[in-house]
Design a protein around this nucleic acid. Structure first.
Lengths: 244, 244
DNA sequence: AGCATAGGTATACACTGTAAGTTTGTCAAG
DNA sequence: CTTGACAAACTTACAGTGTATACCTATGCT
């Protein structure tokens, strides 16, 4: 190993002047994920990521093919965050915990939803497929055939994605609604008398929404998630039992 | 009406040289939606939209505040595409048709999902809230109180969004998967012998996915949507009946 | 010792949203 | 008919984006 002596020489140099450690694809992708989580998707630019790891923008291209590839890496990294629940239990408990864990991952990295939504490409690498393998395995143990198993997977997976998306994005659930002017639903809920918002939302056109306003504002996301998950799992189990 | 005579004069001029009709906010938003549907979200640039309506980019700013505002308009326009099913039927049929209709809208304009996902702002104008009002009204007729009604709305709404998102984006369901190399699932399903892809996906690590591959490729989206919708609606109705 | 090469930098280009300034077309009043 | 006002178009300009190309330089192998 002739490299050894060389190594010693550079190590000595390192001590006196701490050379900046070599960039790796992992460090780049890591930085991108952190920026995405902390500052949003728009903040993830090549120059911003480069600054984060202490190089110029073009240096990144030695470790990722292009920005697409970088974002692929971010998606894969998020999937690696999935922590597999123990499986030595009834299938329905495994499925429920798996669903909860997937929700946790999505809520910890809410921007991957937008990432998936507009990139519209499948997961490709082995590690990203493992959570799917996990889910299919749990579903299979319910005594569901492969064909229906795929349906069950897509239905539950879709449910989780959609509910979390409505949870993190405001869309309908909370935040501000206006009809010409601004209206803060949370403020509405905070004991503002009914007449205060009646002038913003036309009560005669939207009576059900008006009636639902307090509940929209206070609605507990955890409880709601479990509500829908219970409906799906109970229905699936009933079908599986009926089948057998 | 002194303008009348003037009007006649310009009308004559119009006939001989068809002056380009004045731009309106509606024409601008319309063009943006068409571009988004036909060429994707990235294609919706101010210059591209301007070209579509026959003006320069900066002219658009007389009709929309900024690009945010333009995209708000696009979202509102999509919501206006919702066609309200008749309501003189049992609530569950109204709800089912409403869900189907929402899915149709999302599939006709799949890019609004990405739009919602990364803009994360609520619907604001009256017309965009009408489908929500419609849904809450239908749910209310099931004898569900306002509090649980909101949960039901969010669960079903989330389900639709998520399933359609998985349907239009590839993500897990179909398309290409690779493990270093490329693998076309549809090609796999097209009678390629099992050994052909066993070398791409490590069968020992992903047995359930391997087993599910043919069903992933062939799975009928309509059938799958109805499957999950039935589970949710049946569960909700059971609860409503039990409550009464 | 020499040298290929991996990994950093610098420069440049086409494209984005949009601020600021200028021109043009339309209509009402003098 | 002229004049003026005003809305709506256009022109130009700028900072910021992804990335192609070229250049440099330090590392490690022969």
């Amino acid at each position: 190993m002739p490299a050894r002596t060389r190594k010693r020489k550079s190590d000595a140099a390192v001590v006196e002047a701490p050379v900046k450690e070599r960039l790796t694809r992992e460090r780049v992708v890591d930085a991108a994920l952190h920026i995405m989580d902390a500052e949003g998707l728009d903040a993830v630019t090549m120059r911003r990521v480069a600054r984060e790891v202490g190089v110029e923008a073009m240096s990144l291209y030695h470790h990722v093919r292009d920005k697409e590839d970088l974002l692929d890496g971010v998606c894969a990294l998020v999937m690696r965050d999935f922590r597999y629940p123990p499986e030595d239990r009834p299938w329905i408990e495994v499925a429920r915990d798996g669903a909860r864990e997937w929700r946790r991952v999505l809520r910890d990295h809410p921007n991957v939803i937008a990432l998936w939504a507009d990139r519209q490409r499948p997961m490709t690498d082995l590690e990203s497929l493992m959570p799917m393998e996990f889910a299919l395995r749990a579903i299979g143990r319910a005594g569901i055939d492969a064909r229906e198993g795929v349906q069950v997977f897509n239905v539950i997976g879709g449910y989780i994605m959609g509910v979390v998306m409505m949870e993190v994005g405001a869309m309908f659930s909370a935040g501000t609604m206006r009809n010409g002017k601004a209206l803060d639903l949370n403020a509405v809920h905070a004991k503002i008398p009914d007449e205060a918002f009646a002038q913003f939302l036309p009560a005669d056109r939207l009576p059900c929404i008006i009636a639902a306003l307090p509940h929209l504002a206070e609605c507990d996301p955890d409880e709601q998630f479990e509500f829908g998950l219970d409906l799906l799992l109970a229905g699936i189990e009933a079908r599986a039992i009926a089948r057998a």
